[in-house]
Computed example of a mutant assay.
Amino acid sequence: MNEKESPLPASAPRPIRSAANLAVVALALAGLAWAVRAVWHIRLAMAGEPASGPPDQGNGVHRPLNALENSYHLVSSAGGAVTAVCALVFLLWLDRARDNARVLSGKEPRYQYFWLFLAWIVPVVNLWIPRGMVADVHGSVFPERRLPAVVNWWWGLWLAGLAGGVGLFYADSTDDVIARAYNGVWPLLAADLVIVAAAATAALMVRTLTAAQQERIDEVARTGS
């Protein structure tokens, strides 16, 4: 086979297991952070709204927070920070997996590099391009195999977590979420449960796709192709 016919670029696949392990750990921590947030939602609901009313009194007036409400602000901020770090680590894994898929298949990724970051935040396209990038990692290397079901489970849970402004990205302020917990905690708990499930499913997806890609990397190394 001459150079023009070779399906593989000259570069070699990059190590993927360490990036995958970091992503799994980050996803586990993110899931734990949201589980802790759910516990605080339950604590707020059980405590009940103070006689002084919600933290946001309206017209720009905010009453002093009590100890439980203050602690929820800390839990919420910590959870947001952990989620941000998790997102970065996940993208680092996806970037490496995409690069390896290009090397192993000899095909350019279906989506340009800038979509690795923009696809998650641009309205409308964020409903399918992120899943498409993940599916392309597997499909370009294993066109003969079906896409693992865990990818669709992860994506369905991710979209559910985005729905309604009570999941991954609250439409309201933290004080407004506290008021929700006082007056109707079940939608918050449902969103928390979906996000924890999405994090767990994402971790399983990372392990599944990484194992398949590592299998092909080892095969290429053995044959020297």
Rank of each mutant, 00 (worst) to 15 (best):
K4Y: 14
P9D: 09
S11T: 15
S11L: 12
A12N: 08
P15S: 03
I16K: 04
S18I: 12
A28N: 11
A28D: 15
L32N: 06
V39M: 15
P50Q: 13
S52V: 09
P55F: 04
P64Q: 05
A67I: 11
E69A: 02
N70T: 15
N70G: 15
H73F: 09
A78N: 10
G80W: 01
A81G: 13
T83Q: 05
A84E: 10
A87G: 14
F90N: 13
F90R: 06
L92E: 06
L118H: 05
W128P: 06
R131N: 07
G132K: 00
V134T: 06
V134I: 10
V137I: 13
V141H: 04
F142L: 00
P143K: 01
P143S: 02
V150N: 04
W153I: 15
W155N: 04
L159N: 07
A160K: 05
G161Y: 00
L168K: 02
F169Q: 14
D176W: 15
V177K: 04
Y182G: 07
Y182W: 09
Y182C: 07
G184L: 02
P187A: 00
A190W: 11
V194S: 02
V194T: 08
L204T: 03
L209Y: 00
A211N: 10
E215K: 09
T223C: 00
